[in-house]
Amino acid sequence: MSAPIQMVLFDAGGTLLGTNTDHPRWYEQFFVEACAEQGVEVTPHQVDEALVEAAREINLTHRSSSDEQVRFFWEHMYTWCFRRLLPNRDAHQLACHYIDRFEVGEYVQLFDDALEALELVRCAGLRSGIVSNFGSYLHVFLDKTGITEFFEFVIVSANEGCEKPHPEIFDLAVARAGVPAGQILFVGDNLREDYQAAERHGMFSVLVDRYDLHADKPALRRVKRLSDIAQYLPQ
């Protein structure tokens, strides 16, 4: 760390906020549980196959740079999966039903280590912000989980017209922070969109890897619990 950290920027989904399914393959597990609600038993492997197909059928350079993009992307993914997993149902109607429930925060919850991490940053006298690829409803989630007060600013891709890993959103973050990129600690759970993109922008990155998905990469600055970022904060 070449300069003292002045600000900590957090990703939101997967870093601070999770779902009520505490599972390393939470997205697959969501569809397993949604199908069970509809009276059909499916396996995570079946869901994974459907997700791979859905991702193959859509090729978007930007998927989170507006609320319309966010909704289009998730409606495509959900509809495709339900069409494969529940072939006798109205897949698009089901997709909209579950996305609507997600957007009002029905499934969201704070990771059990998030509040401690935010308090550690505050006690260290550092400022905090969020930079997230998300729909504008992220603010609903932050209010619902009671953490809005911790952040000086919240940059949501759908509101700004740019998204990670593209440099524009990091330029915006540096401008809002008002300090050089080298004095910003960026904390996120996505290797490409958070860790590597922030590093390229001159920030000091830490990867949140709760399920040891990147245990084979010893060169990464990696923590299993969000509160373990304490080791990278000024003493």
Rank of each mutant, 00 (worst) to 15 (best):
L220Y: 05
F72Y: 12
R122E: 09
L16K: 03
D100V: 05
L207Y: 10
H97T: 09
A55M: 15
A95D: 03
L233G: 03
D194S: 01
A3F: 13
D90G: 00
E75N: 13
Y98M: 04
T79F: 09
F151S: 06
V8S: 01
V131E: 11
Q6R: 11
I130C: 12
M1I: 08
T21N: 01
P234M: 05
N20G: 05
S132T: 11
A197W: 02
H214M: 10
I58T: 07
D212H: 00
T43F: 06
Q38L: 15
T61E: 12
A55E: 15
F151E: 05
P87S: 09
Q93N: 08
L233F: 10
R192M: 11
R101T: 01
E57W: 10
G146P: 03
P87N: 08
A181K: 07
Q196E: 14
T61P: 09
E68V: 05
D90M: 11
E53T: 15
C96K: 13
G188A: 04
R127L: 09
G13T: 03
R222E: 02
S65Y: 06
Q46N: 08
R225T: 04
Y211S: 01
P87H: 03
Y98C: 01
N159E: 14
L120E: 14
R83K: 14
M1T: 09
F204M: 12
F134C: 07
T19I: 15
E199S: 08
G178L: 15
H45S: 05
H201S: 10
T21G: 00
T79E: 06
V179P: 03
C81M: 13
G161H: 00
N133H: 08
G18T: 15
S128A: 14
N59T: 13
W80L: 04
C123R: 11
K144H: 08
C123I: 08
E116K: 04
V70D: 02
A117L: 05
R127D: 12
N59H: 15
E57V: 07
E103S: 12
L60C: 05
E149Q: 12
P167E: 01
D48Q: 13
L51S: 07
D209Q: 04
H97S: 02
E57T: 11
V156A: 03
E163V: 08
P24H: 00
V208T: 10
E57P: 00
V223K: 00
E199T: 15
T61L: 15
Q235E: 11
P87M: 06
A54L: 13
R101A: 12
E119P: 02
V174D: 02
E160S: 12
D216Q: 07
L138Q: 03
H139P: 10
Y107M: 09
N88W: 10
R176S: 11
A36V: 00
I147M: 01
F204Y: 15
Q183L: 09
A50L: 10
D112I: 01
F153G: 08
N88V: 12
A117Y: 06
V47N: 04
D212E: 07
E119L: 11
H45K: 07
A36G: 02
F170R: 02
S128E: 11
G146E: 04
S205N: 09
L9F: 12
R210H: 00
Y232L: 09
D100L: 00
R222D: 03
H201M: 14
S136R: 08
I169L: 05
A117D: 06
